[in-house]
């Protein structure tokens, strides 16, 4: 009587070149054969579909056939680390970055990072936005010393590629064709729907400094000479990215 360990069951699930473990039968006592393949298929399809749902732009950029191939390689290398499928695929951007056959699509990994950030923002904790009046009430010196709390949904992505334009061009019909340029993106969530926004020059450094807990004045210095403060601050307030301040 051969006992089938979960170790051997799992190993053969993810590697179709391995034989079906001994001790698995059909109803008549014959070897299970392709009945075992039902489980192989369930695992591969469900993980691949989770990746396609989580990375819709990557799926569209690659096309169904290529995406299925790439996702199939990734899911055999990295299964979910927990039953929270909303978290699956955190290693997918790095996997894409290191996948040589797609090396000519240099922007791919950053588009995947943007999609991951959007998904994280979707599930992030709720936070009430800062009332702009509290900001306007501060004199210059107090403002420079003030520290801000950012919404848990807020993330910043700095890319040497036109990552936001590629993302929009891929998913939103009528979006302009991407031009070769670096783009820094703010991901925030006013209400329940995450939004990606292009950050003006210096914006990414400014927001990153605020997220690190630096005072407003220090964040301004980090942002550099060409920083467009009104545009950046307007964006942060409009997207509910700031939730509190202390001074």
């Amino acid at each position: 009587m051969s006992a089938v360990s979960q170790d051997s069951f799992r190993a053969a699930l993810l590697d179709a070149s391995r034989p079906v473990p001994d001790g698995l039968l059909d109803g008549a006592g014959r070897p299970a054969g392709r009945r075992y393949a039902v489980y192989r298929n369930n695992v591969a399809v469900s993980l691949r579909e989770a990746l396609a749902t989580g990375f819709p732009a990557i799926a569209k950029l690659l096309g169904d056939e290529n995406f299925a191939h790439v996702a199939g390689l990734y899911l055999r290398q990295e299964q979910p680390g927990s039953p929270l499928m909303m978290m699956y695929g955190t290693g997918f951007p790095d996997f894409l970055a290191g996948f040589e056959p797609l090396g000519h699509l240099g922007y791919l990994a950053d588009v995947a990072r943007l999609e991951l950030a959007m998904r994280r923002a979707y599930h992030a904790a709720d936070a009430a936005p800062l009332d702009p009046a509290r900001l306007q009430a501060l004199d210059d010196d107090t403002l420079r010393a003030a520290r801000f709390t950012l919404s848990p949904a807020v993330q910043v992505l700095r890319s040497p590629w036109p990552v936001l334009d590629v993302y929009r061009y891929t998913l939103t019909p009528g979006s302009p064709k991407p031009q070769a340029t670096a783009q820094h993106v703010l991901i925030a969530r006013p209400g329940f729907d995450p939004e990606p926004h292009l950050l003006p020059p210096g914006g990414a450094a400014f927001v990153a400094a605020l997220m690190d807990g630096a005072p407003f004045g220090t964040a301004l210095q980090a942002a550099g000479e060409t920083f467009d403060l009104p545009a950046t601050l307007g964006l942060l307030l409009q997207t509910g990215a700031l939730t509190d301040l202390t001074h």
Binding site: F9, Y39, N42, V43, Q79, P80, S82
Partner: peptide, 11 residues
């Protein structure tokens, strides 16, 4: 789940 790998199917 086996060895911290979640397989997303009921085995």
């Amino acid at each position: 789940t086996h060895d911290s790998h979640f397989l997303n199917d009921l085995l």
